[in-house]
Amino acid sequence: MYELISVIVPVYNVERYLEKCVDSIINQTYSNLEIILVNDGSTDNSGELCDNLAKKDSRIVVYHKENGGVSSARNLGLDKAQGDYIGFVDGDDYIDADMYECLYQNLNRDNADMSMCALYDVYVNTKLEQVTKIENYVVNSEQAIKIALEGTIPLVSPTSKLYKAILFEELRYEEGKTYEDAFIIARLLDKCNIITITNEKKYYYFHRSDSITTKPFSIGMLDVIDAWKYNLSFISQCYPSLINSAYRRLYWAYFYVLDSLMSPNSNFDNNIYNMLTSVLKKNMKFILFNPYFNLKRKFMLLSLYIHPIFYKFAVKKFKNKVN
Protein backbone atom coordinates (compact mmCIF):
# COMPACT_ATOMS: atom_id res chain seq x y z
CA MET A 1 0.00 0.00 0.00
CA TYR A 2 2.77 2.43 0.91
CA GLU A 3 5.04 2.37 -2.10
CA LEU A 4 8.63 3.61 -2.03
CA ILE A 5 9.23 7.30 -2.72
CA SER A 6 12.74 8.34 -3.74
CA VAL A 7 13.45 11.92 -2.62
CA ILE A 8 16.39 13.42 -4.53
CA VAL A 9 18.28 16.30 -2.91
CA PRO A 10 20.97 18.02 -5.03
CA VAL A 11 23.57 19.49 -2.67
CA TYR A 12 26.02 22.26 -3.49
CA ASN A 13 27.50 24.56 -0.84
CA VAL A 14 24.42 24.56 1.39
CA GLU A 15 25.98 23.57 4.72
CA ARG A 16 24.03 26.33 6.52
CA TYR A 17 20.68 24.95 5.36
CA LEU A 18 21.14 21.23 4.66
CA GLU A 19 20.43 19.78 8.10
CA LYS A 20 17.09 21.59 8.33
CA CYS A 21 16.24 20.39 4.83
CA VAL A 22 17.09 16.74 5.53
CA ASP A 23 15.42 16.74 8.94
CA SER A 24 12.19 17.89 7.31
CA ILE A 25 12.39 14.87 4.98
CA ILE A 26 13.39 12.38 7.68
CA ASN A 27 10.39 13.43 9.78
CA GLN A 28 7.78 12.90 7.06
CA THR A 29 4.58 11.20 8.14
CA TYR A 30 4.98 9.09 4.99
CA SER A 31 7.93 7.01 6.10
CA ASN A 32 8.65 4.66 3.20
CA LEU A 33 11.30 6.91 1.71
CA GLU A 34 14.64 6.59 0.01
CA ILE A 35 16.50 9.86 0.61
CA ILE A 36 19.20 10.44 -2.02
CA LEU A 37 21.72 13.19 -1.24
CA VAL A 38 23.86 14.07 -4.26
CA ASN A 39 26.87 16.16 -3.29
CA ASP A 40 27.69 18.03 -6.49
CA GLY A 41 31.32 18.85 -5.77
CA SER A 42 30.66 21.21 -2.87
CA THR A 43 33.62 23.34 -1.77
CA ASP A 44 32.29 23.90 1.76
CA ASN A 45 31.49 21.21 4.34
CA SER A 46 28.28 20.05 2.65
CA GLY A 47 29.79 16.73 1.51
CA GLU A 48 30.96 15.80 5.00
CA LEU A 49 27.61 16.88 6.40
CA CYS A 50 25.84 14.56 3.95
CA ASP A 51 27.88 11.63 5.27
CA ASN A 52 27.12 12.57 8.87
CA LEU A 53 23.40 12.90 8.15
CA ALA A 54 23.41 9.43 6.58
CA LYS A 55 24.46 8.05 9.96
CA LYS A 56 21.25 9.42 11.49
CA ASP A 57 18.90 7.48 9.25
CA SER A 58 19.34 4.24 7.29
CA ARG A 59 17.06 5.55 4.54
CA ILE A 60 19.68 8.12 3.49
CA VAL A 61 22.13 7.26 0.73
CA VAL A 62 24.87 9.69 -0.35
CA TYR A 63 26.62 10.09 -3.68
CA HIS A 64 29.62 12.37 -4.22
CA LYS A 65 30.44 13.67 -7.68
CA GLU A 66 32.44 16.38 -9.41
CA ASN A 67 30.59 19.64 -9.83
CA GLY A 68 28.34 19.53 -12.87
CA GLY A 69 25.36 21.63 -11.90
CA VAL A 70 21.97 20.90 -10.43
CA SER A 71 20.78 19.03 -13.54
CA SER A 72 23.62 16.52 -13.38
CA ALA A 73 22.94 16.03 -9.66
CA ARG A 74 19.24 15.41 -10.26
CA ASN A 75 20.04 13.08 -13.16
CA LEU A 76 22.42 11.02 -11.02
CA GLY A 77 19.68 10.80 -8.41
CA LEU A 78 17.24 9.59 -11.06
CA ASP A 79 19.74 6.99 -12.26
CA LYS A 80 20.15 5.64 -8.71
CA ALA A 81 16.53 5.92 -7.52
CA GLN A 82 14.75 2.70 -6.61
CA GLY A 83 11.35 4.17 -5.79
CA ASP A 84 7.99 3.84 -7.50
CA TYR A 85 7.70 7.61 -7.16
CA ILE A 86 10.13 10.51 -7.38
CA GLY A 87 10.32 13.76 -5.44
CA PHE A 88 12.84 16.61 -5.48
CA VAL A 89 13.80 18.92 -2.62
CA ASP A 90 16.52 21.55 -3.00
CA GLY A 91 19.19 21.49 -0.30
CA ASP A 92 18.41 24.97 1.00
CA ASP A 93 14.63 24.43 1.18
CA TYR A 94 12.44 22.43 3.57
CA ILE A 95 8.98 20.84 3.62
CA ASP A 96 6.00 20.30 5.90
CA ALA A 97 5.96 17.00 7.78
CA ASP A 98 2.97 15.70 5.81
CA MET A 99 3.88 16.95 2.33
CA TYR A 100 4.62 13.57 0.78
CA GLU A 101 1.67 11.92 2.51
CA CYS A 102 -0.58 14.63 1.08
CA LEU A 103 0.91 14.36 -2.42
CA TYR A 104 0.73 10.56 -2.36
CA GLN A 105 -2.88 10.48 -1.18
CA ASN A 106 -3.95 13.04 -3.79
CA LEU A 107 -2.15 11.13 -6.54
CA ASN A 108 -3.85 7.85 -5.65
CA ARG A 109 -7.24 9.46 -5.07
CA ASP A 110 -7.24 10.95 -8.56
CA ASN A 111 -5.31 8.11 -10.26
CA ALA A 112 -2.80 10.73 -11.37
CA ASP A 113 0.72 10.52 -12.77
CA MET A 114 1.90 13.65 -10.99
CA SER A 115 0.78 15.42 -7.83
CA MET A 116 1.76 18.92 -6.76
CA CYS A 117 1.16 21.35 -3.91
CA ALA A 118 1.75 25.08 -3.56
CA LEU A 119 4.78 26.62 -1.91
CA TYR A 120 5.74 29.38 0.46
CA ASP A 121 8.15 32.00 -0.88
CA VAL A 122 10.48 32.36 2.11
CA TYR A 123 12.48 35.56 2.45
CA VAL A 124 14.34 36.77 5.52
CA ASN A 125 11.94 38.42 7.99
CA THR A 126 8.78 37.66 6.00
CA LYS A 127 5.50 36.39 7.39
CA LEU A 128 4.28 33.10 5.92
CA GLU A 129 0.55 32.70 5.35
CA GLN A 130 -1.37 29.60 4.37
CA VAL A 131 -4.28 29.83 1.92
CA THR A 132 -7.63 30.52 3.54
CA LYS A 133 -9.47 27.97 1.40
CA ILE A 134 -7.90 24.72 0.24
CA GLU A 135 -8.81 23.82 -3.32
CA ASN A 136 -7.91 20.85 -5.51
CA TYR A 137 -7.74 20.64 -9.29
CA VAL A 138 -7.45 17.73 -11.69
CA VAL A 139 -6.15 18.52 -15.19
CA ASN A 140 -4.96 16.63 -18.24
CA SER A 141 -1.61 17.12 -19.95
CA GLU A 142 -2.79 19.84 -22.33
CA GLN A 143 -4.42 21.82 -19.53
CA ALA A 144 -1.28 21.46 -17.40
CA ILE A 145 0.99 22.66 -20.20
CA LYS A 146 -1.29 25.67 -20.66
CA ILE A 147 -0.99 26.44 -16.91
CA ALA A 148 2.81 26.16 -17.15
CA LEU A 149 2.87 28.51 -20.14
CA GLU A 150 0.66 31.09 -18.47
CA GLY A 151 2.56 30.88 -15.19
CA THR A 152 -0.59 31.00 -13.05
CA ILE A 153 0.71 28.06 -10.97
CA PRO A 154 4.45 27.27 -10.52
CA LEU A 155 4.35 24.02 -12.48
CA VAL A 156 7.80 24.39 -14.02
CA SER A 157 9.94 23.85 -10.92
CA PRO A 158 10.59 20.15 -10.16
CA THR A 159 10.12 20.64 -6.41
CA SER A 160 6.83 20.51 -4.43
CA LYS A 161 5.72 17.57 -6.58
CA LEU A 162 5.45 13.79 -6.61
CA TYR A 163 5.97 11.95 -9.89
CA LYS A 164 5.46 8.39 -10.99
CA ALA A 165 9.00 7.18 -11.63
CA ILE A 166 8.00 5.85 -15.05
CA LEU A 167 7.72 9.44 -16.31
CA PHE A 168 11.52 9.73 -16.17
CA GLU A 169 12.30 6.47 -17.99
CA GLU A 170 13.30 8.38 -21.13
CA LEU A 171 13.65 11.91 -19.73
CA ARG A 172 16.52 13.66 -18.01
CA TYR A 173 17.24 17.29 -17.14
CA GLU A 174 19.33 19.36 -19.55
CA GLU A 175 22.87 19.59 -18.24
CA GLY A 176 24.98 22.72 -18.58
CA LYS A 177 21.89 24.94 -18.69
CA THR A 178 20.88 27.60 -16.18
CA TYR A 179 17.12 27.00 -16.43
CA GLU A 180 17.15 23.23 -16.74
CA ASP A 181 13.60 22.72 -15.46
CA ALA A 182 12.10 24.85 -18.23
CA PHE A 183 13.64 22.66 -20.95
CA ILE A 184 11.95 19.48 -19.74
CA ILE A 185 8.55 20.68 -18.53
CA ALA A 186 6.43 20.38 -21.70
CA ARG A 187 7.73 16.88 -22.50
CA LEU A 188 7.30 15.79 -18.87
CA LEU A 189 3.69 16.99 -18.68
CA ASP A 190 3.02 15.44 -22.08
CA LYS A 191 3.74 12.02 -20.53
CA CYS A 192 1.05 12.56 -17.88
CA ASN A 193 -2.56 11.58 -18.38
CA ILE A 194 -3.72 13.24 -15.17
CA ILE A 195 -2.07 15.87 -12.93
CA THR A 196 -3.59 16.61 -9.53
CA ILE A 197 -2.95 20.00 -7.93
CA THR A 198 -3.70 21.45 -4.51
CA ASN A 199 -3.26 25.09 -3.59
CA GLU A 200 -2.32 24.11 -0.03
CA LYS A 201 1.23 25.23 0.73
CA LYS A 202 3.55 22.45 1.87
CA TYR A 203 6.96 23.39 0.44
CA TYR A 204 9.19 26.20 1.72
CA TYR A 205 11.19 27.78 -1.08
CA PHE A 206 13.96 29.79 0.54
CA HIS A 207 15.18 32.79 -1.46
CA ARG A 208 18.87 33.16 -0.65
CA SER A 209 20.63 36.43 -1.38
CA ASP A 210 23.20 34.51 -3.43
CA SER A 211 20.76 32.25 -5.29
CA ILE A 212 20.42 32.25 -9.05
CA THR A 213 17.01 33.91 -8.81
CA THR A 214 18.47 36.98 -7.11
CA LYS A 215 21.74 37.39 -9.03
CA PRO A 216 22.25 40.19 -11.57
CA PHE A 217 22.33 39.51 -15.30
CA SER A 218 24.73 36.88 -16.62
CA ILE A 219 25.03 35.39 -20.07
CA GLY A 220 23.59 32.13 -18.75
CA MET A 221 20.23 33.83 -18.32
CA LEU A 222 19.79 33.64 -22.08
CA ASP A 223 19.15 29.92 -21.52
CA VAL A 224 15.62 30.74 -20.40
CA ILE A 225 14.89 32.09 -23.88
CA ASP A 226 16.34 28.96 -25.48
CA ALA A 227 14.21 26.81 -23.17
CA TRP A 228 10.95 28.42 -24.21
CA LYS A 229 11.98 28.40 -27.87
CA TYR A 230 12.50 24.67 -27.45
CA ASN A 231 9.08 24.31 -25.84
CA LEU A 232 7.52 26.41 -28.59
CA SER A 233 8.81 23.97 -31.19
CA PHE A 234 7.44 20.98 -29.25
CA ILE A 235 4.07 22.63 -28.60
CA SER A 236 3.62 23.76 -32.21
CA GLN A 237 3.88 20.10 -33.25
CA CYS A 238 1.98 18.39 -30.43
CA TYR A 239 -0.37 21.04 -29.00
CA PRO A 240 -1.09 23.58 -31.78
CA SER A 241 -4.08 24.95 -29.85
CA LEU A 242 -1.59 26.30 -27.28
CA ILE A 243 0.64 28.13 -29.75
CA ASN A 244 -0.40 31.62 -28.59
CA SER A 245 0.30 30.68 -24.97
CA ALA A 246 3.70 29.33 -26.04
CA TYR A 247 4.57 32.61 -27.76
CA ARG A 248 3.39 34.53 -24.72
CA ARG A 249 5.76 32.51 -22.50
CA LEU A 250 8.62 33.06 -24.94
CA TYR A 251 8.15 36.84 -24.86
CA TRP A 252 7.89 36.65 -21.07
CA ALA A 253 11.38 35.09 -21.18
CA TYR A 254 12.68 38.04 -23.21
CA PHE A 255 11.20 40.43 -20.62
CA TYR A 256 12.69 38.37 -17.80
CA VAL A 257 16.20 38.65 -19.22
CA LEU A 258 15.74 42.31 -20.09
CA ASP A 259 14.62 43.10 -16.53
CA SER A 260 17.79 41.48 -15.18
CA LEU A 261 19.96 43.30 -17.70
CA MET A 262 18.39 46.63 -16.70
CA SER A 263 18.51 46.07 -12.95
CA PRO A 264 20.70 48.55 -11.01
CA ASN A 265 23.45 46.05 -10.13
CA SER A 266 23.93 44.60 -13.65
CA ASN A 267 26.48 45.55 -16.28
CA PHE A 268 24.68 46.92 -19.34
CA ASP A 269 25.39 45.09 -22.60
CA ASN A 270 24.24 47.07 -25.62
CA ASN A 271 24.29 44.11 -28.06
CA ILE A 272 22.11 41.95 -25.81
CA TYR A 273 19.82 44.92 -25.11
CA ASN A 274 19.34 45.48 -28.86
CA MET A 275 18.62 41.79 -29.45
CA LEU A 276 16.03 41.61 -26.67
CA THR A 277 14.26 44.87 -27.46
CA SER A 278 14.19 44.14 -31.19
CA VAL A 279 12.14 40.99 -30.60
CA LEU A 280 9.82 42.67 -28.10
CA LYS A 281 9.21 45.70 -30.31
CA LYS A 282 8.57 43.50 -33.34
CA ASN A 283 5.88 41.65 -31.38
CA MET A 284 4.48 44.70 -29.64
CA LYS A 285 0.92 44.23 -30.95
CA PHE A 286 0.76 40.64 -29.70
CA ILE A 287 1.99 41.66 -26.25
CA LEU A 288 -0.27 44.71 -25.88
CA PHE A 289 -3.38 42.70 -26.74
CA ASN A 290 -2.48 39.61 -24.70
CA PRO A 291 -4.52 39.45 -21.46
CA TYR A 292 -1.80 37.53 -19.63
CA PHE A 293 0.56 40.51 -19.71
CA ASN A 294 -0.59 43.01 -17.08
CA LEU A 295 -0.87 46.77 -17.54
CA LYS A 296 2.44 47.48 -15.84
CA ARG A 297 4.25 45.17 -18.25
CA LYS A 298 2.56 46.80 -21.22
CA PHE A 299 3.51 50.22 -19.90
CA MET A 300 7.11 49.04 -19.61
CA LEU A 301 7.06 47.86 -23.22
CA LEU A 302 5.88 51.28 -24.36
CA SER A 303 8.66 52.91 -22.34
CA LEU A 304 11.22 51.14 -24.54
CA TYR A 305 10.22 53.47 -27.36
CA ILE A 306 11.12 56.50 -25.28
CA HIS A 307 14.54 55.66 -23.80
CA PRO A 308 16.25 52.77 -21.98
CA ILE A 309 16.43 54.90 -18.84
CA PHE A 310 12.63 54.88 -18.59
CA TYR A 311 12.57 51.09 -18.74
CA LYS A 312 15.31 50.92 -16.12
CA PHE A 313 13.23 53.16 -13.87
CA ALA A 314 10.17 50.95 -14.41
CA VAL A 315 12.14 47.80 -13.53
CA LYS A 316 13.10 49.36 -10.20
CA LYS A 317 9.59 50.70 -9.49
CA PHE A 318 7.62 47.59 -10.47
CA LYS A 319 10.03 44.95 -9.17
CA ASN A 320 8.18 41.61 -8.64
CA LYS A 321 4.89 43.22 -9.69
CA VAL A 322 4.84 42.52 -13.40
CA ASN A 323 4.29 39.48 -15.57
Rank of each mutant, 00 (worst) to 15 (best):
M1I: 07
E3V: 00
I8Y: 01
V9H: 05
V9W: 03
P10T: 03
N13R: 02
V14Y: 08
E15N: 02
R16A: 09
K20Y: 04
V22G: 00
V22W: 01
I26D: 06
Q28I: 02
Y30M: 08
L37Y: 06
V38I: 15
G41M: 08
S42M: 08
S42C: 11
S42P: 08
N45I: 03
S46P: 01
G47I: 02
E48R: 14
C50A: 01
C50H: 05
V61E: 05
V62I: 00
S71Y: 10
S72L: 14
A73C: 09
A73K: 12
R74N: 04
N75C: 05
L76N: 07
L78K: 07
L78I: 14
K80M: 12
K80F: 06
A81D: 11
Q82N: 15
D84T: 07
V89T: 06
D90I: 05
G91C: 03
D93E: 09
I95W: 05
A97C: 08
D98L: 13
M99G: 01
L103F: 13
L103D: 04
Y104T: 01
Y104L: 02
D110L: 04
A118M: 10
L119T: 08
D121H: 13
T126D: 12
L128W: 12
E129K: 11
Q130T: 09
V131A: 08
K133V: 15
I134N: 10
E135S: 09
Y137H: 11
V138C: 11
V138W: 11
P154T: 10
L155C: 09
P158C: 05
T159I: 11
Y163G: 04
K164H: 11
A165N: 14
L171S: 04
E175D: 09
T178L: 15
D181M: 01
I185T: 14
A186T: 14
L189W: 11
I194P: 02
I195R: 06
I195Q: 00
E200C: 12
K202T: 01
Y203H: 14
Y204L: 03
F206M: 09
H207R: 13
I212N: 09
P216K: 01
F217M: 04
S218D: 09
I219K: 14
G220A: 05
I225R: 01
N231R: 01
L232V: 00
Q237R: 13
P240D: 00
S241F: 00
I243Q: 11
I243L: 12
S245N: 10
A246N: 01
R248P: 00
R249Q: 09
A253F: 05
A253Y: 07
F255S: 04
V257F: 05
D259A: 10
S266T: 09
F268T: 06
N270T: 13
N271E: 14
V279E: 09
L280R: 07
L280F: 03
N283A: 03
M284A: 07
K285R: 11
K285F: 11
F286L: 15
P291A: 08
Y292D: 12
F293P: 01
L295V: 12
L295A: 13
K296V: 06
K298M: 07
S303Y: 05
S303T: 10
L304P: 04
I309S: 15
F313T: 10
F318T: 07
K321Y: 08
V322W: 07
